[in-house]
Design a protein around this nucleic acid. Structure first.
Length: 263
DNA sequence: ATGTTTGTTCCGAT
DNA sequence: CATCGGAACAAACA
């Protein structure tokens, strides 16, 4: 049982030999042996529930990928973490890849799950989210509607692409102050948000021109072919040239004819 | 070369 | 003290 002198001895040796060494990869050997019980989602986190009340959480951020691969398949681009798995007598891998390194992976215990959930506002797909609650969380964030929609602690699950399309579909200017929104508009925004998100799920997500997003099998999504205003030139409703500007430092597309700022 | 990017967090300003 | 907004994180691409 190492006490201070033993720990000190090791720390000094490690410091002498390893300071300035670069960690190229990390391998976790065997006997982790936890089973993946179920995979779910909390906001934009992918949650692997493991045995013994342990959870493995991945956040893909902008460029993360999780790929199901055969173990002998050649390396993928930008591999960061490889899990080797056994199921029904066969082995395979789950590969977490990310070019920009904005993605995250962490292991947490069950009691931290509630803390994770508490960071987020109501999930946009939750049946329990009423228009009244939706409106009240938006209004509580005293800013413009686009900024509020993108704040995951206000309402969780809407990203920049879908916020643009949602505001276009709801004929709402992105700079509309949340406190000027009425319940009828909140209803419209909520219904349209659910419709857009569900449609994009049916299309298995959006893959932009950088080809970064792929599903767990490496296949592209198709929802980019159904964008309403994001990355579009002309309004699909009236033909007006779509405006592009940075709002809260995020690329924002809107139709100046259909989405008039009124307040 | 510079500007852009699907997300989130942190820090300074208000 | 609470809240907001922008910079930063890092890499690839046009």
């Amino acid at each position: 049982m190492p006490e201070l002198p033993e720990v000190h001895t090791i720390a000094v040796d490690l410091n002498k030999h390893l300071s300035n060494a670069v960690i190229k990869s990390i391998e976790i050997k065997n006997n982790f042996n936890k089973k993946i019980i179920e995979v779910t989602r909390i906001s934009k986190n992918i949650v692997l529930e493991l045995s013994s009340e342990t959870f493995l959480i991945f956040h893909l951020a902008m460029t993360g990928r999780l790929l199901i691969r055969k173990s002998d398949r050649p390396n993928d681009d930008w591999e960061r973490i490889i899990l080797t798995l056994a199921k029904n007598g066969k082995t395979g891998q789950l590969r977490f890849c990310d070019t920009r390194m904005f993605g995250k992976a962490e292991v947490i215990k069950k009691e931290m799950i509630n803390k994770l959930k508490s960071k987020y506002g109501p999930d946009i797909l939750a049946d329990s989210l009423s228009p009244e609650e939706f409106l009240s969380v938006l209004v509580a964030k005293r800013t413009n509607i686009k900024n509020a929609l993108l704040d995951q602690s206000v309402v969780s699950g809407i990203g920049n692409i879908y916020a643009n399309d949602l505001l276009w579909m709801s004929k709402t200017h992105p700079l509309t102050k949340t406190n000027s929104i009425k319940i009828a508009k909140a209803k419209e925004l909520l219904n349209n948000a659910k419709e857009i998100i569900k449609e994009a799920i049916l299309h298995r997500g959006s893959t932009l021109s950088d080809k970064m997003f792929v599903d767990a099998f490496g296949k592209y999504g198709t929802h980019q072919n159904y964008f309403r205003v994001y990355d579009q030139r002309n309004c699909k409703n009236c033909g007006t040239k779509i405006k592009f500007e940075k709002i809260n430092s995020r690329g924002t597309y809107y139709c100046p004819t259909c989405q008039v700022l009124k307040q």
